[in-house]
Nucleic acid binder design. Structure first.
Length: 415
RNA sequence: GUGGAUGUAGCUCAAUGGUAGAGCCCCGGCUUGUGAUGCCGGUGGUUGUGGGUUCGAGCCCCAUCAUCCACCCCA
């Protein structure tokens, strides 16, 4: 339909049906995360642009072309946050928590990226993220993975697959990278155009190219997982054996690459095949160098983020709140009395709608459409006697009750 | 940023280039203060927007905007 004003492209309204799913997801996250003793933080949506350039990397698509970036009235270069980790690190440092032991945080909120919208991809979207500062793993890596797994299990989303990989570290990755570039360089003519540019910009990206002819060339490409240094190897082994000990199903996917520069060692994704091209529901990894990169002391850390809209699409619809009682007021003289009855019913915990007065037939139609369990009919006679006609809308039977008896009857039906 | 599909009533959709319709929803009526089914009636459209071709455009052409799908990238 054409209305005068529309929301900005790729920025959608959260209407009741979707928000019911969001709330369910958020409540589940808070419940599960609290069992791992993670604390919720609420961080700014606006941050200095330079912070993301430093953390995510100036060559990434997010920074190079997807940020909502502008100069504010004071001339500061600021932007709408495109992801949550950088701001969390900034807040961790700003609060002076680097000598306060490990910090376990999670956050829920909107992120912004100016991409072309499609299924499961919006310009403003909600993420739930978790960050754990000051721990080097692999035990903590396993716990983070276990927390993500427990959350999704408790949400009841079926057919999700956990994929893990190791991205190495500054000790072993450069040598691997050189080897990979040499391998790719020898096959430039057989690789697609974008892969040719990726060889120079981000060679590991070539590994997860979706072009079939490229994948055919990559069958025996060198993989990071088989070029790890000793420390990375034992770390990765520790992660795998921890997951095994918890009987958490996973597969090692050597083609997992992280788009953001700050990741090292453990990287993981939880994916579904039910969302078309946007199958990643949750993704994260270890970022041991980021805190230092943003000006703090060398501090290992690990975290993940998930897309709430994508999760919501995988969940069945949740029914709207039910109406216990619909108040039908017959005659103008009972208007005040009917308002008072509705108020008393609500104070007793009942979910009450007022049908607005007017023709009884119309009010009953409202009650029916809202699927009220009971109707409280209030007319001149009822007001004089201090009663109400309580009609059971399923059986059609009706009886005159005082307020306390009515509340008791409604409560009995609610349980 | 690239490619493709689609825009007609609140919703789902019709309408050989010749008077814009249906179903559902909504509102009202079918005698007193009572819902669901049924019957009757009603509101509701500058056909996304702006140009062009034509005697005449919802239909053809161009542009633009939006939605959806894919690429890219990512949660």
């Amino acid at each position: 339909m054409s209305t005068q004003f529309r929301s900005i492209r790729g920025i959608h309204d959260g209407l009741p049906e979707e928000v019911r799913s969001f709330r369910h997801i958020e409540e589940t996250a808070r419940r599960v995360f609290s069992r791992y003793v993670f604390s919720e933080v609420r961080l700014p949506v606006l941050e200095p642009t330079a912070m993301f350039v430093r953390s995510i990397g100036s060559d990434t698509d997010i920074v190079a072309k997807e940020m909502y970036r502008f100069e504010d009235r004071g001339g500061d270069d600021i932007c709408l946050r495109p992801e949550g980790t950088a701001g969390a690190v900034r807040a961790y440092l700003q609060a002076g928590l680097t000598r306060s032991g490990a910090q376990r945080w999670f956050y829920i909120g909107p992120m912004f990226r100016r991409e072309r919208p499609q299924k499961g991809r919006l310009r403003q979207f909600q993420q739930i993220g978790a960050e754990w500062f000051g721990v080097s793993g692999p035990v903590e890596d396993v716990e983070v993975l276990a927390m993500a797994h427990a959350f999704l299990e408790e949400l009841g989303i079926p057919e999700l697959a956990m994929e893990i990989n190791s991205l190495g570290c500054p000790v072993c990755r450069p040598a691997y990278r050189d080897k990979l570039v040499a391998f790719l360089d020898a096959r430039r003519v057989s690789l697609c155009e974008t892969c040719n540019t990726r060889i120079d910009s981000n060679p590991m990206r070539v590994l997860d190219c979706k072009v079939g002819s490229c994948q055919a060339q990559l069958a025996d490409a060198p993989e990071m997982a088989s070029h790890l240094c000793g420390d990375c190897q034992s770390h990765f082994d520790g992660v795998k054996s921890g997951l095994d000990a918890l009987a958490i199903p996973y597969v090692v996917n050597p083609r997992i690459v992280r788009g953001l520069d700050y990741y090292n060692r453990t990287a993981f994704e939880i994916v579904t095949n039910k969302l078309g091209a946007q199958g990643t529901v949750l993704a994260g990894g270890r970022y041991d160098g980021l805190v230092e990169e943003l000006g703090g002391p060398a501090t290992p850390a690990i975290g993940f983020a998930m897309g709430m809209e994508r999760l919501a699409m995988l969940l069945p619809d949740i029914a709207a709140g039910s109406v216990d009682v619909a108040v039908v007021a017959i005659g103008d003289s009972v208007a005040a009395y009917a308002l008072g009855i509705a108020d008393r019913l609500r104070r007793a915990g009942c979910h009450v709608i007022h049908c607005g007065g007017g023709a009884a037939k119309r009010q009953f139609k409202v009650a029916d459409r809202e699927q009220a369990r009971f109707v409280a009919v209030l007319g001149e006679d009822e007001m004089q006697q201090g009663l109400m006609q309580v009609k059971d809308m399923q059986s059609g039977s009706q009886q005159a009750l005082g307020i306390d008896a009515a509340i008791a009857a409604i409560r009995q039906e609610r349980s």
